[in-house]
Structure formats: C-alpha cells, structure tokens
Design a protein around this nucleic acid. Structure first.
Lengths: 337, 337
DNA sequence: ATGAAAGCGCTAACAA
DNA sequence: TTGTTAGCGCTTTCAT
C-alpha cells in the first residue's frame, strides 16, 4: 500500500521555502507585497508539493466562500435548466461555484433551502421560484447576503431581478390574435397564485382584451397543468370552452394542447392558433412548429449572476430591475407570418 | 439604521446557558451524553438566539463538508438533468448539498472541475461525463474521496457506476428491427470516441447484425450531431444512405431525424422506423410518438447518489457495477406493438 | 517586503 | 455528564 500522501498545507509550503505563512498566503492571493525572488521560490514549492489551498479554511478565515446558492423549482424543466446554465457559466467565469437546490416551487422547501444555504455561508443567492410567499421574502430579507431573482419578479420590485416585460409580451401576443378576429382566446397559466402569472401574464392578456373592447371571461383562463400529461386533460377543458386560440405560458403544455387538438381531428392553425412563451426546443420539435415569445433564457440567468457578483462585491446597482428584450417568433401554429 | 445583528455563534449559546462549547456542540450534534435538563436549556437558548451552526467552521473542524460535487456535461440536456434530479433528491434526503459543474463533456474542463471541487473539500463526487479520458481518470483516482459514475461506465469497471446494460439494450432493439426485414439500419451515436457509444451501443448493434448474418457497414454509423439543428443536417446523410430504420442514442436527435424525413414526404413508420433511447418527453411529443428504450434516468441518479453515501460512510459495496433494468416502449414510430 | 500572532466557529480527544 | 484544550488551514491586522 502506497502511503496516503496527506494534502500539503500552507504550512508545509512555508516551511519548505523558509518563509512565514503570511508570505505564502500573499503569493497565493496575488498580493503585490512580495519580492519577485521570494514569489518564485514559493511558487516553485507550491508546484512541487502540489499544494492546493483548502477553500473551507479560507472561507472560515475570510468569510467569503466563493460559493453561491441557486434555488429553483426543478432542474428537469428546460426553462429553468437554461437559466441555470447562464448562471453557472457566469459564476464559473467569476470563480464562483453553485450549490443547487430543487424546491418544486414549494414555499416551505424554499425557506428550508435558503436557510440551509446560509448555513453553508454562501456569498449570494439566485432565486428562481415563480412564487415568492411572505415567509420566503422574510427569509430572503434577513439573509444578510444579496439575492437576485432570475426569470421572476417580486411585488413592488422589492428585490433585484432580471426577466422580460411579461405584461407587454402577453399583451402583444394577445392583441395580434384579437386582430385576426378571435373572440375566445384561452390563456393558459401555470398557477393562479404566483405573481408572474397573476400580476403579469394575466394583466397583459386582460389589457389586450380591454383595448379590443372584449369582456374578460375568467372561464377562459386555465391554470391547472404543469406537466405534459396534465396538459392533455386540461386541453379537453379548453376544447369544451370552444376557444379558437390559445396563449400558453409553457412549451410542454403548449405542445400538449397542440397534440390533443390534432389528435382529435382539429387543424392547426386553421381551427386553432397557438402561441407559447418559452421557445425551448419543444417549440421546434412539434408539427406544426409553435409560434413563441422568445425569452433570452440563458441571458436572463447570466445577467442575474452578473448582477449578483456586483452585489457581492458591494457595488451599487444603477438598475435593479432589468428587463431583457424578447422577440416574437412566428411559426406554423399561427396564421400570420 | 437597525444595528446588523451578528449571527450568534456556539459561544454565544454556551455563554447564555452557562455551559461549555462542548456541551452545546453535543446537543447540536445529537450526542447522547447530555442530561435532559441541560439539553432543554441549550435548545431554548439556541431557539432564542436563532443560532445556526456555521457549516464552514464545522467542515474545517470535522473534515466533512456534507457537500458533494456533480460533474456533468450540460444541465440543459434533459437526460442529464433527470439524472441530476435523482442525485439531488437523494442527496437532500441524506443532508448533502450538491455543487454543480457543467463541462460540455470537455475533458480539460472536467479535470479542472474535479480539482476545484476537491479544493472545496467535497465529500464525494458524482461524475456524468460519457467520456472518461486518462487525465480525468487520473484525477479521479487521486481524488481521495469516492466518485461514482451515473449513466456512464469506466473501462474495466474501474469505477463504481450505475447505468443500464447498453449492449443488450441496443442489441435487442436492433434485433427486433432486423426481424422485420430491415437490411440497412442506421445507428446514430453521439460520438465515436466515448466508451458508452463505442464499446457499448455500437457493440450491441454489431452483435445483432452478426447474429442475423448481416455484414457490418461503417457507413451506417453516424456520430456527428448533438443538437436538434445538427441532427437535421445529419438526417440528410442518413437519407443518402437509403436506410430503412434507425436506432438513435438521443431523443432530440431522433425527433430531428423523424421530422426531417416526414418533412421530406416520408411516412413513419411505413418508410422508416425509428427507435430512440432516452424516453424523455421529446419521445411523446413527436408525431408519431417515438418507440424508445426506457432508461430509469431518475433512478440511475438516485441509486448512484445512494452508493456514494455508502462510500462516504466508509461502507463496503457488495456490488460496484449496478445495472438497472430498462424497458422497451413501442410507440408509433415502429411497426410492431 | 516579511513575520508574528490572533482569530474565524466549530469538533474532538482527553480529563475530570 | 460536563469542561478544557488543542487544533482544522487559512486570512489579516499590526509590527518590524
């Protein structure tokens, strides 16, 4: 058995070179106050010993862990995983690592997750829940570390966030549908009790109706499906309401509705027009392809992380509510190009 | 300005109750050697002070961080995100947090990632790359902490791993296709230089051919598409080879091929049969739906994490090479039920 | 430019 | 059952 070589510590390096811990620490941290010749010797010893600073000890001494927490509903959901990828890439760029936690949008679990992350002394948190209950808000506000929302928003812009202008996006999409003569347009949301759906998407939809002089009908708003399978069931409800167009908050749900209608003999876009809003691969995989609001998912994550790095550095933000531009992509599920 | 209340430390608790640090530590860690009345007092103080143990200090003192690292190609890929979800859920169950790193299957980045995770003193690592180059292997073997592969395999079973029997799965699927009279069956892989493709999927495919007495034709093996878009290009190559059936390693690629053929007037499954192998939602979203090998993705991640917990506890593993059962799901893209 | 020394907040022998 | 005392490996004043 080869003897298990213990990891070298800063002390080993110092001893080998014949300098103090402080000096080694300085060269490791790129502090200028080290004579070049000393620096070289230390570097050489570090290399020879294969010394790797222990991040935990460092974290304890410096009170910075270079670790952030990411609290999200579900990695498995493409929308969130794309946001996460943006977060991760920028985090890596700035030498942060990301601790991931899935909450399934459950507020209790979110509170627990945040508490746990704080216990691990993360330097900051990216929060991706669409919900933001009072307990979660309280937890965040007492966190003591910066938190930024990605792809979400807090009431009264209480927290830094990056997303798109959901109100306008949904208003525009709905208006276009109305312009084509639709009277019964379904709005498919994820849940009635989250701000992003209730205060933004729904509001945009309602504004469009109002401008067009059409009465709002709560029967046309659906919000009980979050999976493809559940979407099939909900699609039956849409059909029962004789809607002629639908605006959906999620691509999988949109495809689910699309397939359901087509499987029941409807023609899309002739009998039903559909617009979705995340533009994931699901929207180009379906036949016809789905017209979609195109949110810059990766960028939302990336920008949120960039904001967080500034906040963690104690920098002031000139703008805490960032709205990234979105585009509208016309594909086969709608009638006009 | 409200005075920023500093987080209470174990010392504050000890002082408040009038006991030593050790006693507080004992109750926090559930050590039995504490009189009930003392325990109650400590618990009360902890509650009143809102004391939360600092995990970093703990990690330094105990040499356990209750944090694991997850090294994966890309969170954005549904296959990996499902594995990750399995890992995360079990990790959480055992009180571990997961540090996530995307490598895009790049071996240099994998080495860097592992090195970095070790620096952070993770207690173990779940590795998901399909590739496993010598440098990565070397890094893993010198890690000093347990590593288990999820959805992947190492040559010579050198590392603990959990996955399915890819050879048999691909052999079976190919054999079924051959039985239906196909002579030119395309095998679509991700890359020729990774073990999972070259040593398992390809071998299964070849075995089936051999048993059927059909010569292997390298021209029918494709491995240059990893995205939906690239899949479209590659589909043209398949078409040029007049294949009548395809076995694909990934759902998005499979849908891409399916769509390409149908968009060019082919009928599926009449003119072309397709079988895919991950059974993600992409396979039920397409029309026709895709027949697929069904790997228990979530379970692979979950079982891998469970193995890792045992390893981290110093337990012996009775079986280090776990093959989970897979099923074959027949859908519209193939001709037989 | 370099070193000495005091922590960071906690665990873990070892004593008592 | 409880307390004392070293550390864990590093950063960070403060001297020199």
């Amino acid at each position: 058995m080869a003897e298990q070589k213990k990891n070298a510590t800063i002390y080993d390096v110092a001893e080998k070179v014949g300098v103090s811990l402080a000096t080694v620490s300085r060269v490791v941290n790129g502090n200028d106050n080290v004579r070049q010749s000393t620096r070289d010797k230390v570097l050489k010893a570090i290399d020879e010993l294969g010394y790797q600073p222990n991040a935990v000890a460092r974290g304890l001494a410096s009170k910075k862990t270079t670790t952030i927490g990411v609290v999200m509903p579900d990695v498995t959901n493409v929308f969130y995983s794309e946001l996460t990828r943006g977060v991760d890439d920028i985090a890596q760029m700035y030498q942060y690592d990301a601790l991931l936690t899935n909450t399934d949008d459950d507020q209790d679990r979110a509170v627990t997750a945040i508490k746990n992350l704080l216990t691990k002394q993360v330097d900051g948190i990216i929060y991706m829940g669409t919900k933001l209950s009072a307990p979660v808000m309280a937890m965040i506000q007492s966190a003591g570390v910066p938190v930024v929302l990605a792809g979400s928003v807090a009431e009264n812009e209480a927290l830094p966030s990056v997303n798109i202008d959901y109100v306008t996006a949904f208003e525009t999409v709905t208006t276009k549908l109305l312009a084509r003569g639709h009277q019964r347009i379904a709005l498919v949301l994820g849940s009635r009790d989250r701000a992003i759906d209730q205060d933004f998407r729904l509001v945009g939809y309602q504004r469009a109706l109002q401008e067009a002089g059409i009465d709002y009908d709560d029967q046309l708003v659906f919000a009980k499906a979050r999976t493809y399978e559940a979407g099939q069931l909900q699609a039956a409800d849409l059909m029962a309401q004789d809607v002629t167009a639908v605006v959906a908050y999620d691509d999988e749900i949109a495809v689910s509705i699309l397939n359901y209608y087509q499987d029941h003999g409807y023609k899309v876009p002739e009998d039903l027009e559909i617009v979705t809003s995340n533009n994931t691969n699901f929207s180009i995989v379906s036949r016809p392809e789905l017209s979609s609001i195109n949110q810059p998912k990766y960028d939302i994550g990336a920008v949120a992380m960039r904001m967080l790095t500034k906040l963690m550095n104690g920098e002031e933000l000139t703008d805490t509510q960032i709205k990234l531009p979105y585009t509208l992509i016309s594909r086969g599920s709608t009638r006009t190009k």
